[in-house]
Design a protein around this nucleic acid. Structure first.
Length: 421
RNA sequence: GGAGAGGUGGCCGAGUGGUUGAAGGCGCUAGUCUCGAAAACUAGUAUAGUCGUAAGGCUAUCGAGGGUUCGAAUCCCUCCCUCUCCGCCA
């Protein structure tokens, strides 16, 4: 969430930012009005509490002298009632304020182009070329079926649509990619985390999945847990409610997890094959950094993700997302899209974002500047990378006329084979 | 799942209704002492909200939330977590 003080002092800026994100700016003034009410009630009740405290201490002294304090006690009873009444009002106002505060999105960074639709995202870099072949390239769903390495139909039987089964070299390729990504991250100084795959409501709120994106998560109602939609959630919450020493910054973490997403509302859109599934594997990078360096760290993070695509020899481009296409909690975001030549489509395989203090404030994640008061850290994350679309692009990019697939060299040590089929 | 014990400041630990934001110790920071260090001694050492130009004041916080009371770390209720024993189990 945003800092209440910041909203108070920058009303117009916040409204502009919220509007550019295509969110409702009406909440901003509502929050400000609730904030005024809150402070008014707070002052009133705190004065009464101060009185209560001094008089109650007095009662103690009187009683210890074995004197009569019944008159004062009777008087304080009405004060106590008044406190209770105002406290209740205060509680209501505060709950509303917090509720609204959670519904105000983070505001975009000034370097982000203002825009309404994905069409206004900017392609800021492209790398690699499509394979130069003289045969018609197949989409991956045809390749994997013939090769028998991913079985969508049986996944549907076991669970439901969007739960593919990886078989034989398909499973091995998946495992190889996960290890490759994790090893690359470790080499860049990221500490590997293996987190829980279910999180509680507090964690989901910390990263912004709740209340905004509740419908996208699978819920274990019996225990009030959520299946992780991305490792971002458990990993970013690792130090929730903690104060990190400044010398530990930047904290760099990486994690492989399966990701579970209901993908409600996206039926029929790019759902063929591996393009959009309910359960998939992903390696995620997370950083906690000093507020002064978060935009430099964002570029480094993007580099870490890009390098993987380069090493895999895939064609990709980098999008700088416009304000209207930014997520609720993000101030700036790059998407990496890889080209899948069999279906002639760009597929999003990574999303690299800065959240500034927005998540960290929700999570109460701070650092202590040397000798100073605790401050909120900035959080960033990026996929490095999401597996299914990488596999899709990789299979399509490296297919042979016979429908076999050549494994990229960097993976040979991981797969133990160089050809599928 | 059953039975029991317990959750206090960075850590250990005292505290069963009346100056307890919280004794004492450890740790940490600064100072004294020392050629320097250790030891010893002295002082300081939470977070947040709110009012104030500031100094500073006030409020809240002893797992979380609610209740009783003029007054709660202390009594009551609910929940969470940890530990021990039993059961079950990869």
């Amino acid at each position: 969430m945003l800092d209440m003080k910041f909203i108070r002092e920058n009303r117009d800026k916040v409204i502009a930012g919220v509007t550019n994100k295509k969110e409702d700016p009406a909440f901003v003034d509502e929050v400000l009005s609730l904030d005024d009410q809150r402070r008014e009630l707070l002052q009133k009740v705190e004065q009464l509490k101060a009185k209560k405290n001094t008089v109650s201490a007095e009662v103690g002294k009187i009683k210890s002298r074995k004197e009569d304090a019944s008159a004062i006690i009777a008087e304080m009873k009405s004060v106590a009632d008044e406190i209770k009444t105002i406290d209740e009002q205060l509680g209501t106002v505060e709950a509303k304020r917090t509720d609204l505060l959670l519904q105000i999105p983070n505001i975009p960074h000034e370097s982000v182009p203002v825009g309404k639709s994905p069409a206004e995202n900017k392609v800021i870099a492209t790398h690699g070329d499509p394979p130069s072949v003289d045969f018609p390239m197949k989409p991956h769903w045809e390749l994997v079926e013939k090769l028998g390495i991913i079985d969508f139909a049986r996944g549907t039987k076991i669970t439901g649509a969007g739960f593919p089964v990886y078989i034989g070299k398909g499973a091995q390729l998946e495992r190889a990619l996960i290890n490759f990504f994790l090893d690359e991250a470790s080499a860049q100084g990221y500490t590997e985390i293996m987190p829980p795959l279910m999180v509680n409501a507090a964690s989901a709120t910390g990263t912004g999945q709740l209340p905004d994106k509740e419908d996208q998560m699978y819920v274990v109602t019996k225990d009030d847990f959520y299946l992780v939609p991305t490792a971002e959630v458990p990993v970013t919450n690792l130090y929730r409610d903690e104060i990190l020493p400044q010398k530990n910054l930047p904290v760099k973490l990486c994690a492989y997890t399966p990701c579970f997403r209901r993908e409600a509302g996206s039926y029929g859109k790019d759902v063929r094959g591996l393009n959009r599934v309910h359960q998939f594997n992903k390696v995620e990078l997370v950083k906690f950094v000093h507020p002064d360096s978060s935009y430099d760290e964002l570029e480094l993070l993007r580099g870490d993700a890009e390098r993987l695509l380069q090493k895999l020899g895939l064609q990709y481009h980098v999008l700088l997302m416009c304000t209207g296409d930014l997520g609720f909690t993000q101030t700036k975001k790059y998407d990496l899209e890889v080209f899948a030549p069999g279906q002639k489509k760009w597929l999003e395989v990574s999303s690299v974002s800065n959240f500034e203090s927005y998540q960290a404030r929700r999570m109460n994640l701070r650092f202590r500047p040397d000798g100073g008061k605790p401050e909120i850290v900035h959080t960033l994350n990026g996929s490095a990378l999401a597996l299914p679309r990488i596999v899709a692009a990789l299979l399509e990019h490296n297919q042979t006329p016979e429908g076999k697939v050549v494994v990229p060299k960097v993976l040979h040590g991981y797969t133990g084979f160089e050809l599928i089929g």
